[in-house]
Design a protein around this nucleic acid. Structure first.
Length: 466
DNA sequence: TGGGGTTAT
DNA sequence: ATAACCC
């Protein structure tokens, strides 16, 4: 069987540089024009169906056949398909939702603990298929399947190859060409996608959608084509159809609220508008980085790699409210947020080296803007982190209140609508590679913390006098 | 618009 | 520290 190879195989991280060694030297065909999607990667995007609602239905199976909404404050942040049939949508006001659907059952979803735990179980399950898994929020994951597809292909006999079929939908019902190596790869990808969804359902009881394509953008877009609990593969020839199906540039992942507004001001509304707009002018308006990236997106091109997420970079807890206008009130809320965070971070095992306080001030109608202050966590506090302790609360609350007073003039009236505490700059405790001095170094001093100008001698003294 | 997350500047 | 993006 003849296979027409469209692109360079091997690199699963896409974007082979132009100077990368290619075919036989001196060949006339060396001048490969690296046009769109010369990538031969196979990427899957996995998107759980109404994730929070699913978790709630697993917790309480009596909810399964009822219209269910998950509530945070006065919003229905997500709902199951029973509720959607009756007109409830995501981020709908609770009053509107109840009006549309009086039988709607609401559960409070402000505590994300169970959602977060289930979310990581999904990511871990996917990591068993391939370690290259990137999380996007709690309910979406990208996996780079390139390598495992290639492995499977090598095991296939030629008679099995000719009997290869797709699992799930093919976007646009495009005919499959088994002589096209990229079609073959994507079909194998679709079968792995089905295996992943089966495993999610059998092991975790979760349903979701999957999209298989040659890059993250396209995989994400195509995963949503057939919606609850189905999967779709995009063959390269239908790429343009898929991106033209977006009716506005704001629908393009990577083009957010701000950029969409600026594009609209330039008269750019559709994907085609963006494709044909002058690159030079776009670069002047948005900066070269954003301009080049989003214009590529408009052609369905996306060479960004699937970056393994690994453990979280930060832990945060926030609470929003109608009004907080006194320091004591703020302190009580901050204490609650911090207590929960300390529990989470001690279960993680790593130690945060930075703490941040975030506020949102009341403003009549301006776009909600947040302000933050952060500072290093003193090393003696870091050390005490881990075991269930109260003696770490006091110094950390003191720090947070200093950050608070740095942002908010407490002698003047104020009106806050959100408080958030974030622990970040997480470091593993014992990354020390045994040098002569390391014996004296504690976990909180390891690696990068010693690199600064502040000599390790003074820091060392703090620890050796224990 | 909640209660989270990430990266770039 | 903020601003943009994602869910």
């Amino acid at each position: 069987m003849e296979l027409a190879d469209a692109g360079a195989a091997g690199s699963s991280q896409g974007a082979p540089g132009p100077e990368q060694p290619g075919g036989p030297a001196g060949s006339v065909h060396d001048q490969v024009v690296p046009t769109q999607n010369s990538s031969s990667r196979v990427i899957i995007h996995v998107d759980l169906d109404c994730f929070y609602a699913q978790v709630e239905m697993i917790s309480n199976p009596e909810l399964k056949d009822k219209p269910l909404g998950v509530q945070q404050k006065y919003l229905v942040v997500t709902c199951n398909y029973e509720a959607r049939k009756l007109g409830v949508t995501k981020l709908m006001n609770v009053r509107d939702a109840k009006e549309k659907c009086p039988q709607l059952v609401l559960v409070n979803g402000e505590d994300l603990t169970r959602y977060r735990e289930m979310s990581y179980k999904v990511t871990e399950l996917l990591e068993e298929f391939s370690p290259v898994v990137e999380r996007l929020g709690f309910d979406e994951n990208f996996v780079d399947l390139t390598e495992i597809v290639e492995k499977k292909l090598q095991q296939l006999q030629s008679d099995e190859l000719s009997a290869l079929t797709v699992s799930g939908h093919v976007y646009n019902n495009q005919p499959i060409n088994l002589h096209d190596i990229m079609h073959i790869r994507l079909l194998v990808g679709s079968q792995i996608a089905a295996e992943m969804r089966e495993a999610m359902y059998n092991q975790l009881g979760l349903t979701g959608c999957a999209g298989v394509a040659c890059n993250k953008l396209l995989a994400k877009l195509v995963s949503g084509v057939f919606k609850p609990n189905q999967q779709t593969v995009l063959l390269p020839e239908s790429c343009q159809d898929l991106i033209y199906s977006l009716n506005h540039i704001k629908k393009m992942p990577g083009i957010g609220y701000k950029t969409a507004k600026r594009l609209e001001a330039l008269g750019i509304n559709s994907v085609q508008d963006l494709q044909t707009f002058s690159s030079k002018i776009l670069e002047k308006e948005l900066g070269i980085s954003v301009a080049q990236r989003i214009q590529k997106l408009s052609f369905g091109e996306d060479n960004s790699p699937v970056t393994p997420s690994g453990p979280p970079q930060s832990f945060s807890e926030e609470d929003s409210f109608k009004k907080c206008s006194s320091e004591v009130e703020a302190k009580i809320k901050i204490e609650e947020l911090l207590a929960n965070l300390l529990n989470r971070v001690s279960r993680d095992g790593r130690k945060p080296h930075t703490i941040r306080l975030v506020i949102r001030r009341y403003s009549s109608e301006k776009y909600c803007c947040r302000e933050s202050r952060q500072c290093p966590i003193p090393s003696h506090v870091i050390q005490k982190l881990g075991a269930g302790n109260y003696d770490v609360m006091t110094p950390m609350v003191d720090i947070l209140m200093k950050l608070f007073r740095n942002m908010v003039n407490v002698k003047m009236p104020f009106h806050l609508t959100l408080l958030s505490v974030c622990l970040c700059n997480l470091k593993a405790l014992n990354t020390t590679k045994k040098g002569p001095m390391d014996y004296y170094l504690t976990s909180s001093m390891s690696t990068t913390s010693c690199s600064g100008k502040r000599s390790s001698v003074s820091t060392l003294l703090q620890y050796t006098k224990i």
